[in-house]
């Protein structure tokens, strides 16, 4: 089983995000970049399926020089090799999906994992685009996956409290949601040492990605600050409850 895990380096959630002077990007100085938290779940699923069915996991990322750090981490938590598509400009989902698709076409692939979204872009668009560009079936936000022979059975929760179960012929593109295969593993010390010996291939993106950047950031701004709140007064729990309900009814008018 040849498994591809598409990953992306994103700022750590706890990092304070500061908009740059031109208001078209963020200050990257001092921002801690990590493997996307959703990507960890996708990679864990890839690693576990490989460990059961045999084969290889290749982590693929699109990003600038620093993105290689993320791949090194991937190699310590289940990936066998990695491909770094070196392009610092690809921030549009279509450009990223195209760069990934062109690379994945050259690699043997039975299963392509993507994750829910990057915590920087908050998009979740690369997965379905990749399915389309590779001409492969796609299922998003999968919470369970079992691979058997040439197909995968996957389940996911959808709005309205329903759970959909699909049988998908491989190869396919699967977006792994949190919990698909439990918590992501830690990079053990021996795994970190072994990762040093695993290959990272760096390639230039194929095709004219610039022409695919159809979503341009014009301006970044901070969301409006929430007006300061207040503490609900009251001597007892019952008083506070009464006052809160009054405030929600007559002041906030939400109930």
């Amino acid at each position: 089983m040849n498994i591809i895990a598409c990953v992306r380096q994103t700022p750590d959630t706890e990092t304070v995000i500061k908009i740059n002077g031109a208001a078209n990007g963020i200050e990257l100085d001092g921002v801690k970049l990590v493997l996307g938290p959703y990507d960890e779940y996708a990679l864990e699923a890839a690693a576990q399926i490989k460990e059961k069915s045999g084969g290889e996991v290749t982590a693929v990322t699109v990003g600038g020089e620093k993105a290689a750090e993320t791949l090194r981490h991937c190699l310590a938590v289940g990936a066998d090799k990695a491909v770094h598509i070196n392009d610092s400009g690809a921030d549009d989902a279509l450009a990223i999906a195209t760069a990934l698709a062109n690379q994945i076409k050259k690699l043997p692939h039975d299963l392509v994992f993507v994750s829910n979204k990057g915590t920087d872009s908050d998009r979740g668009a690369v997965g379905p685009m990749l399915g389309e560009l590779l001409g492969l079936p796609y299922v998003g936000l999968v919470t369970e996956i079992e691979v058997e022979g040439g197909s995968a059975t996957v389940s996911r929760d959808v709005e309205g409290g329903a759970k959909e179960k699909f049988k998908v012929t491989l190869p396919a593109v699967i977006c792994a949601q949190k919990g698909v295969r439990g918590e992501p593993r830690y990079a053990s010390l021996p795994a970190i040492m072994k990762a040093k010996k695993k290959p990272i291939e760096t390639v230039s993106p194929e095709g004219d990605l610039a022409s695919l950047r159809k979503v341009q950031v014009e301006k970044l701004e901070y969301p409006p600050a929430r007006p300061p709140g207040r503490m609900v007064p009251g001597e007892s729990a019952a008083d506070k409850a009464k006052e809160l309900v009054r405030l929600l009814r007559s002041e906030a008018k939400v109930i």
Binding site: P128, M129, L130, G131
Partner: peptide, 18 residues
Amino acid sequence: KELAGKLAARHSAALASE
């Protein structure tokens, strides 16, 4: 979301998410 992504790719079109 999966519909929009798929169609945007098919049209090589801009997609703004969420």
